[in-house]
Deep mutational scan, measured.
Amino acid sequence: EMEYEEITLERGNSGLGFSIAGGTDNPHIGDDPSIFITKIIPGGAAAQDGRLRVNDSILFVNEVDVREVTHSAAVEALKEAGSIVRLYVMRRKP
C-alpha cells in the first residue's frame, strides 16, 4: 500500500540536499522508471525539513510530471524549479 505526501522545500545555498536515481533511460529498480531519492545530504534543505526519505519516489516537481521521464529531464525539472520547490512523493506505507 502506498502513501502520498506533498513536501515543500526552500532551496538552500547547497541546493535541495538530496540525490536521485532512476528515469526511463536508467531504471533504478527492475524496469520501474520512477525517480527515487537515493541519498539525503546531512545539513541540506531536505534533511532540515525531515519529511523526505530515501526510497521515496518523486511524482511531480512543482507542476512538472516526472513519472515517465529520463534521468536528465528529472534533474532539469529540479534545477528549473526555482527557490521554493514542491515535491509530490509516493512511498510504501511502513
Rank of each mutant, 00 (worst) to 15 (best):
S14K: 06
Q48I: 04
E6V: 02
H28M: 11
M2S: 02
G50A: 08
P42T: 13
T8F: 05
S34R: 06
D56W: 05
H71C: 02
V89A: 12
V61L: 09
S83N: 15
S34F: 07
A81E: 07
V66C: 08
P42H: 10
V69P: 14
T70S: 10
D31I: 07
L16H: 02
R67Y: 03
K39W: 08
P94S: 03
Y4T: 09
D25F: 07
P94G: 05
L9G: 00
K93P: 04
E63H: 09
A73V: 09
G50C: 08
I84S: 11
V75P: 00
L78F: 02
F36R: 15
K93D: 10
E76T: 07
P94W: 03
E76W: 12
I20F: 08
E68A: 12
I20W: 13
K79N: 01
E6Q: 04
L59W: 10
G12V: 08
L59P: 01
R11F: 07
V75K: 05
M2A: 01
R91W: 03
E76M: 12
P27M: 03
H71N: 15
V54A: 10
R53C: 02
V85Y: 02
R91I: 10
A81R: 12
E3S: 09
L59V: 11
H71E: 04
T70Q: 10
I84K: 06
A74P: 01
I84P: 13
A81L: 08
V64S: 11
E5S: 14
E80T: 04
I84H: 06
R53K: 11
A21Q: 12
V75R: 09
E3W: 02
S83G: 11
S19L: 02
K93N: 05
N13F: 04
D56A: 03
M2K: 09
V66S: 11
S83W: 11
M2Q: 02
Y4M: 09
D25E: 08
I84T: 10
T38C: 15
R67M: 03
G17F: 02
V66K: 01
M90R: 11
G30A: 09
D32Q: 11
E1K: 15
E6M: 03
P33M: 09
D31M: 05
P33K: 11
T24G: 09
G22P: 04
D31T: 13
K79S: 01
